[in-house]
Design a protein around this nucleic acid. Structure first.
Length: 575
DNA sequence: GCCGTTTTCGGCCCGACTGTTTTCAGTCG
């Protein structure tokens, strides 16, 4: 989910649509590639485009040259881009939408538009159903069927799904396929391996001498709804949940190259390929080649080493400067899942959780944690049965008593205390002072204007008892946009006050997101993962939080969850 | 349209699968 629409988001969308139009018209495809690259680059910017323009740094952004820079300036000055308006003139938007249908590329879309006057997905569906498409050159009955299936797929809402939903599904599939005879290795690849917050489809990579056998096992899994492709080295299915899963099979000697290749991202790979070319090498999914000779490919380390690079962790492979950092030997030492010693945000039956304090603590012990923070809701969040002062203090007493029975784990008495509309907190200071950790969070009036939202959070951070701000933007992936918020101001205040920001690890939150994390890291702000678990099983969301932190270039020393219990005590006592 | 340890012109990542084709175009990732 993208935040509020600023100029860079508008420009990004414009360049994407321009790329569509040019493809449709059959112009030099590399122009479209250039526009799409610029569109992605714009979205990835940490700063506002206006700032960059004002400081004359536009042309220093990779992928933005003379032509695109001019168009950006034109848009900022006039609100439109003439070249775009001219290019799209006479082409209805509904025609371009046809290109979103799987199987319908620019060529086929242009063909049906020109020959049959088809201007929308609905008209395409009618023509395909009536068997009219097969009369066109290069088209047949099978193509019609495929197009109809593609239309159904899009209508079914084959949208991106949450990482936290996809991860268990793909791990179950892998567990099953790893028992197939001849499977030497099998791992997830693609955006899932990069721990992107949502994934479009799932890529799985296997090593075996007998590709057909695995592909057959794959396409006959119990979860298969539809088989899209089945060859010797590749299979593609739609699961009952509507998730597309692609399996690729290579020989073991190529596994590293293939894993690298299918993990992406696309932009990262293109950049790597350029590096390879400059050295007279060729990279593909089978290895790194100098002429006919293969010089690497069994492991990913080999592939990167062939380019004089250290292994770049999958979570960083977004072409956001990781290759340059690797070349300079400046890759961050990312936090590891194994470094995590505790969870800062769990609920219990006292508010809206499903397990007792003791059950949550037991689950934390089983995970080897050294601390866990019990942070139920406060009274303003009535829908979640938030605790008032009396119930909170009773819970603190209960936690102290329970603590005496546990030696190896510290049970932190805390609260996920509401930030009210005016920025004050739901409990008075003398109550907050009795807690081990105070996490402040906005749960209401999320749509207030940017200034007001920012002021509320800044004010909460100024309260000396507050240690963390939970789910700072309030977004819910696919359901609710992030609140309007001056994140830069929040991060700077965090740096000043020493208040940390939460990476809320709920699958549909992941808030802070990876980009905010990276900025936090740059500013020296501490982050802390809280699973916000409402039951003991959900403590596993920690993995998702670690994924966000790693994608945000967060090192071990910036993540509070890696602190030992005694070091943490000092931070919590603070000042 | 972008870009430069072969280049300011001429490349631009590269291969698999499908369906339609008797040798390949289109699409996808």
């Amino acid at each position: 989910m993208i935040g509020a629409m600023g100029k860079k988001e508008e420009l990004s969308g414009l360049f994407e649509r321009l790329a569509d139009v040019l493809e449709f018209k059959g112009e030099n495809p590399f122009k479209s590639i250039a526009y799409r690259k610029a569109a992605r680059t714009l979205l990835d910017l940490d700063e506002e485009i206006e700032t960059i323009v004002a400081e004359g740094r536009l042309r220093s952004i990779p992928g933005i040259g003379e032509g695109i820079a001019k168009k950006i300036l034109e848009y900022l000055e006039t609100g439109q881009v003439k070249h775009y308006e001219e290019a799209r003139a006479g082409i209805p938007d509904s025609v371009l939408e046809i290109m979103n249908i799987p199987g319908m590329g620019p060529k086929t879309t242009a063909l049906v538009y020109k020959e049959l006057g088809i201007k929308s997905v609905d008209e395409l569906e009618a023509a395909a159903s009536a068997g009219k498409l097969r009369e066109l050159p290069g088209m047949g009955a099978k193509k019609e069927e495929n197009i109809l299936r593609g239309i159904r797929l899009v209508r079914d809402g084959s949208k991106r799904i949450l990482l936290g939903v996809a991860l268990p599904i793909v791990e179950a599939i892998i567990a099953e396929l790893s028992t197939v005879t001849g499977v030497e290795m099998i791992l997830p690849a693609g955006s899932l391996r990069r721990m992107k917050e949502t994934v479009g489809d799932i890529d799985i990579l296997a090593a075996s001498e007998d590709g057909r056998r695995i592909v057959e096992a794959f396409t006959s899994l119990g979860c298969v709804r539809e088989v899209l492709a089945a060859g010797d080295t590749k299979g593609s299915i739609i699961t009952q949940d509507g998730l597309q899963v692609d399996l690729r099979v290579v020989k073991a000697e190529s596994f590293g190259a293939a894993l690298q290749y299918f993990t992406g991202s696309k932009d990262h790979n293109v950049a790597l390929r350029r590096l390879a070319q400059a050295r007279g090498l060729k990279i593909n999914e089978y290895g790194v080649f100098r002429g006919e000779e293969r010089i690497a490919g069994t492991t990913e380390e080999e592939v990167y080493r062939a380019l004089d690079l250290p292994l770049i962790p999958p979570e960083l492979r977004e072409d956001r400067g990781e290759i340059e950092a690797a070349q300079k030997g400046e890759l961050p030492r990312l936090v590891e899942f194994a470094d995590v010693k505790g969870d800062f945000h769990v609920h219990t039956t006292a508010s809206d959780g499903h397990n007792t304090i003791e059950e949550m603590v037991e689950a934390a012990v089983r995970r080897g944690y050294k601390y866990i923070a019990i942070c139920d809701h406060s009274k303003s969040t009535t829908v979640a049965n938030g605790l008032d002062e009396t119930r909170l203090l009773a819970q603190v007493a209960e936690i102290r008593k329970l603590q005496s029975r546990y030696k190896g784990i510290r049970i932190l008495a805390g609260s996920e205390v509401d930030i009210r509309n005016d920025g004050t907190l739901d409990f008075p200071d003398e109550v907050l002072g009795q807690l081990d950790i105070v996490i402040a969070a906005v749960h209401s009036a999320l749509k207030r204007p940017r200034d007001e939202m920012t002021r509320r959070i800044l004010k909460a951070m100024d309260n000396p008892h507050v240690r963390l701000i939970a789910h700072p933007t309030g977004r819910l992936l696919g359901k609710r946009e992030p609140s309007e918020l001056d994140m830069e101001a929040v991060l700077k205040r965090a740096a000043e006050t020493g208040v940390g920001l939460e990476i809320n690890a709920q699958p549909d939150r992941l808030d802070l997101d990876d980009r905010d994390c990276r900025r936090a890291q740059e500013l020296g702000v501490k982050v802390a993962i809280g699973t916000d678990a409402h039951d003991a099983d959900s403590l596993w969301y920690m993995r998702l939080g670690v994924g966000v932190a790693r994608r945000g270039w967060v090192g071990k020393d910036s993540l509070l969850n890696t602190f030992t219990a005694s070091r943490l005590e000092k931070v919590l006592r603070r000042s």
